[in-house]
């Protein structure tokens, strides 16, 4: 028991990713993420932040090396097993990725795809208990009043919170957020980041966020890692991070 608590939830072992067109996405990435950490990934555009995040739930395949989650190598998962893996990893996107014309409730319930047989998902036959959970999830992102509204009638920040509620339905161990606040204004940015922080502190969910804003990174992170051209060039707990360090990550060449 003690051992699992201290064992990393995610471990990268010499991971390389080369895209089909020859672009190097990740280069010899080797690091570990402890359970319950709030990790922020920074780096220039094209540095490989999205690539890194997407290898964790196998939305992107790696070319060599190994990624372990809870000490199990994820590379061999196929079909059902792969979907089970994704089921426990929430993902949040820059563009929210909701079904615009569906109600907020329906969008939130769609987070349950991994838990229900396909035909029930298709017919929308979710149990009363799960509908209640959807209400609870919306309550946590303070959006219960909007439950029956159409998703495209919400503001950007509200839509992002709906997306968070959707991942909450997955009951995730890990949340991956790829620039979740890039298209939001400062106020809604705070709403969204605070929500992520609460999930991290209260539920112990491991949160990995790609950010472009150094200020936000310093405000929310337990630890910051920096990527440049697919390489891990920086890795420090928040107490050791200095502004000069971060400036160096953002230097060109």
């Amino acid at each position: 028991m003690q051992a699992t608590a201290t064992a990393p939830i995610i471990a990268f072992h010499h991971v390389n990713k080369i895209y089909a067109n020859g672009t190097v996405g990740l280069k010899d990435i080797d690091f570990q993420i402890p359970r319950g950490q709030f990790l922020v990934v920074v780096g220039l555009s094209g540095a490989g932040k999205s690539t890194l995040l997407r290898t964790i739930n196998r939305m992107h395949e790696i070319s060599s090396g190994e990624i372990r989650i809870d000490d199990a190598p994820i590379g061999a998962y196929k079909g059902k097993a792969l979907r089970q893996l994704r089921c426990h990893i929430g993902m949040i996107f820059q563009n929210f990725n909701l079904v615009n014309r569906a109600s907020v409730e329906r969008n939130v319930l769609s987070g349950l795809v991994g838990y229900y047989p396909t035909w029930k998902c298709i017919l929308g036959l979710f149990s009363a208990a799960d509908k209640q959970r959807a209400v609870q999830a919306l309550k946590r992102v303070s959006l219960t009043p909007k439950i029956f509204t159409r998703a495209d009638e919400l503001s950007g920040g509200q839509q992002q919170r709906v997306a968070i509620a959707r991942t909450l339905m997955q009951d995730p161990k890990i949340i991956l957020a790829d620039e979740p606040v890039a298209s939001l204004d400062p106020r809604t940015t705070k709403d969204v980041m605070d929500t992520l922080q609460r999930l991290n502190r209260e539920d112990g969910i491991t949160v990995i966020v790609n950010l472009h804003s150094v200020a936000l990174a310093r405000q929310y992170a337990d630890r910051i890692i920096g990527l440049r051209a697919g390489e891990l060039v920086y890795d420090q707990p928040i107490d050791n991070v200095t502004t000069a360090d971060l400036d160096r990550i953002y230097q060109t060449n």
Partner: peptide, 22 residues
């Protein structure tokens, strides 16, 4: 816009779920 499809896939949806839900 392929966003919704990506979201369902990342939540563990299979092909028919991606098709019908997104």
């Amino acid at each position: 816009d392929r966003g919704a499809e990506e979201a369902i896939r990342s939540a563990g949806g299979n092909r028919s779920e991606i098709l019908t839900l997104a």
